[in-house]
Amino acid sequence: MIIIKQTRFLSLALLLAVPFMATQVQASADSLSGVTAVNVASSVSAANTFNRNLKKDKVRNAAPPEDGIHDPANDSTHVLQPPLEAFEGFPPSDFGNYVDWVKTLDDGIIQPRWDRKDPTEEPFVMDLDIVRPVKASVPDVVFPHRQHTMWLACSNCHPAIFIPQQQANQINMSAILLGQKCGVCHGKVSFPITTKSCKKCHSKPKPADWEPPLSEATLKNPWR
């Protein structure tokens, strides 16, 4: 009986908090359930919650007043455009802005300027794919110049980030995750590095008979 009433109070507290922090409530649901566990059933250990480390986007494309970085007390914040209004009709994706920017541009849904003032100036698009074989079991990487030169100038990458010569650059995943090489843009503005995006870069399947090389330790393993 008491328990039921308390739970009701908990939900009441939740409801009261909603208008203040509308979208934050979801994010704090974990911490709330922690509190509930302590109050209602003290036998369940709060230290062993399900998915301790899982981070998920609870809200996609939040409007500026609710996004946590814009100040809702600033009048102009409410004049800023909500992303979802702008993204109406854009081909979707599963990460980043949840927009497939390459397709949006290819389909002519947007026409971003190549020159600050002249809307008729066209980019110099270069269609050259660079294949980077990968030692690991993941598909090989194909770097497509076409999609990049539709957005960027050669000087954005050459020579500061990449020497313009095939295989002249050391690239690996840890550098990318650190924000170097491809990671200068991917993970910042262009699509991020996440389980769902691996295959955008790792797009050339390995031959059917490909096997991952065995490590020294396995080859020399006396207990094998």
Binding site: S31, V35, K58, A62, G68, P83
Partner: peptide, 18 residues
């Protein structure tokens, strides 16, 4: 607890910005 949680979450992850 709720407020502490909220403060924690908004400070640490500035959660849902585009």
């Amino acid at each position: 607890g709720l407020l502490a949680g909220l403060a924690f979450f908004s400070a640490v992850q500035s959660a849902k910005a585009e």
